[in-house]
């Protein structure tokens, strides 16, 4: 089938960038990223017609778990299918003659490096600000020494399923990272091992999140809708409650 692609082209962080159109022939079995492989092959084979060269895009595992792929497809991070990363989106979701516009994740805290590639190190820095349990290798008690109820363990897992892709930020009109931070904070707040550092953790992570230039949450819910791992908005409610709890207890 024939697809018209409008792709964001930007040669580097200082270039202002813009959309460029390409016509491309694909099959329904291809993944969305395989379509970009085919496009890049076309661009590489004909450098005189395409002096802008192939399209840079981030990708790695191509099975929906590494969180590296990061396209905004027709205005939606990771495209139209629910709970699906760009790499797992297949062309059978489109039809012959469709026009698709592809842009990078956009946020002040995710500067564009080239074409569709953005810098998401701000997410790492948030997690470095206490997003862990301080346990030294070798100091752990037997794994079955603490029983954790299945319901709590399952909840913790649901939050821990976050792949850190940043779609929540790209989807949010405020470029808020609260779904991401909420998932990280809630995962550790749900397990007994995470209790000791619970207050300090949320205070520091939120402080870092604000410092990186992410916006606040105004309950649009776009983040949940575009999250490839279907992390629930409950994570944000939990983050707010954890923050309030920590603020009160540290004020005492």
């Amino acid at each position: 089938m024939k697809i018209k692609l409008n792709v964001w082209r930007q040669s580097g962080p200082k270039d202002s960038g813009g959309l460029k159109s390409y016509d491309i022939e694909v099959t329904e079995h291809m993944s969305f990223l395989e379509m970009f492989d085919v496009l890049n092959e076309q661009l590489l084979k004909n450098p005189s017609k395409h002096p802008e060269g192939p399209v840079a895009f981030d990708h790695d595992c191509r099975e929906g778990i590494c969180g590296m792929c990061s396209m905004v497809i027709d205005g939606v991070p990771h495209g139209p299918n629910k709970a699906t990363t760009t790499c797992q989106l297949h062309m059978r979701s489109y039809k012959d003659g469709d026009e698709i516009t592809v842009e990078p994740f956009r946020a002040k805290a995710f500067p564009v490096l080239r074409d569709l590639v953005v810098d998401r190190n701000s997410f790492d820095r948030i997690q470095q600000a206490g997003g862990y349990i301080s346990v030294r290798t070798g100091a752990a008690p037997d794994a079955n020494a603490i029983a954790i109820g299945k319901a709590d363990a399952d909840d913790a897992f649901d939050y821990a399923a976050c792949i850190g892709c940043g779609a929540c930020v790209a989807a949010c009109p405020n470029a808020s990272a609260m779904l991401f931070v909420g998932a990280k904070v809630s995962h550790l707040a749900k397990v007994p091992q995470g209790q000791v550092e619970r207050n300090e953790r949320v205070l520091r992570m939120v402080d870092t999140m604000d410092g990186e230039g992410f916006g606040g949450c105004t309950n649009h819910g776009e983040c949940e809708a575009s999250c490839p791992k279907a992390i629930s908005l409950d994570a944000i409610a939990m983050l707010n409650s954890e923050l309030a709890r920590a603020a009160i207890s540290s004020a005492k």
Partner: peptide
């Protein structure tokens, strides 16, 4: 055996049975 202990202490959400054990 130490690896599992270490991971659980870090908060890794391994599957559990209803009694709360791994």
């Amino acid at each position: 055996v130490n690896i599992i202990d270490q991971c659980v202490a870090q908060g890794v959400p391994f599957a559990r049975e209803y009694g709360g054990l791994l």
